[in-house]
């Protein structure tokens, strides 16, 4: 009995020594630059960075912060960053512009993030009152497409209003100075403006007409040359997704800290988003919808809706989280 115990003890000691002596030295972290935003749509990237999930996967992430996804994507196209978090609308225009990009994964979806906030003192209390009003919008963004959709849903077209190009961060000031009567925008500016206008503000939204996606995108060249990095990146973001699902309060605290917003604001907009790392039909349908809209409104020279599947790189997601890849199912179903 004692002999057996002694042998077991020795075995444990030897295996313990082996672990310490022969443990692999950690390989150096691979440095990548991600262009992302302080918007709630970039929550998974912030959480992955703050919780060290990128480092766990062997990546050293250099953040390149932007106001919104359109500029983040531009920094990728201009080789300032390797990856970007960006909504589908800038991606659409990039594809229509023949940029060689890949969509790696959708990281958030929402049909409640976009809205039009209007000033009541401009005589707006119903959606059709928007007719003839000056509406601030950031061109070629989700706000632009949402504005179009909301007008259509209320029997109007773009011709019925006066669109005013405004940068997202300038919307609040433009409304305050009455340069515009309403603004088509997203969070956090949307909720901040709503609070600012108080009783003078009115929101118009319709969750049946638009589903926004926020995605991870990169240049095709970078992706094909660094498939392992893409896998590591996706793995880290999937870890962040699980963390957000299981520890929403802590994730909100992280977002409040890194974006310098109040926890109340973070909490207020939190439930408008589904933080799922996935590749499903939503991104394809939305891109096709927006492509038709862009072609019809002559926002592009293209006359044909591209095959967006060619711009989706699914290998990494399929490898890391096979159940998150849902494009095949829908193809079969339809």
């Amino acid at each position: 009995m004692f002999r057996v115990f002694f042998l077991l003890l020795m075995g444990l000691l030897v295996s313990s020594c082996n672990k310490h002596i022969f443990a692999k030295a950690p390989s150096p972290l691979k440095k990548i630059t991600i262009a992302y935003t302080f918007q709630p749509q970039s929550t998974l990237i912030h959480v992955a960075k703050e919780k060290g999930f990128f480092a766990e996967e062997g990546l050293e992430v250099v953040p390149l912060m932007h106001q919104y996804g359109k500029t983040a994507l531009r920094s990728v196209l201009e080789n300032e960053a390797d990856l970007a978090t960006v909504a589908e609308t800038p991606l659409l225009f990039s594809i229509l512009n023949d940029d060689k990009i890949f969509i790696l994964s959708t990281i958030v979806a929402s049909s409640q993030n976009s809205a039009i906030i209007a000033r009541k003192d401009a005589g707006i209390s119903k959606a059709h009152h928007l007719k003839g009003k000056k509406i601030g919008v950031t061109p070629l963004t989700t706000g632009d497409f949402f504005l179009d959709s909301l007008l259509i849903a209320n029997g109007m077209t773009r011709k019925d209003i006066i669109p005013v190009p405004v940068l997202p961060d300038d919307m609040e000031e433009a409304l305050k100075l009455k340069k515009i009567d309403a603004a088509s925008t997203w969070n956090y500016p949307l909720t901040q403006i709503k609070h600012l206008l108080g009783d003078n503000g009115i929101l118009f939204f319709d969750e049946d007409i638009y589903t926004e996606t926020f995605n991870l995108a990169s240049k095709q060249d970078f992706v094909t040359k660094n498939p392992e990095i893409i896998k590591q990146l996706i793995r880290a973001v999937v870890k962040a997704q699980e963390f957000v699902k299981n520890h929403p309060k802590e994730a909100q605290e992280i977002m409040a800290r890194v974006t310098n917003k109040t926890p109340e604001l973070i909490k207020e907009v939190w439930n408008s988003f589904s933080f799922n790392v996935t590749l499903d039909q939503t991104i394809l349908i939305t891109l096709e919808d927006e492509a038709r809209w862009a072609i019809k409104n002559k926002l592009t020279d293209k006359t044909k809706v591209p095959d967006f599947k060619k711009f989706i790189y699914a290998d990494a997601l399929k490898s890391v989280s096979p159940s998150a890849y849902k494009l095949n199912r829908v193809e079969n179903e339809n």
Binding site: S111, S149, I152, A153, G155, M156, T157, D208, I209, Y210, T211, D280, Q281, T282, I285, T286, E288, D289, R292, S323, K326, R329, V330, E333
Partner: peptide, 29 residues
């Protein structure tokens, strides 16, 4: 302005497909 409603029809159909896909994926899961 019934053309506007035709455009809305397209948008609504797209959104319906998205929801039905969500539903189908959810059932599959």
């Amino acid at each position: 302005n019934k053309q506007v409603y035709s455009e809305l029809d397209n948008r609504l159909i797209s959104q319906m497909y998205i929801r039905h896909n969500e539903f189908f994926n959810g059932v599959q899961e």
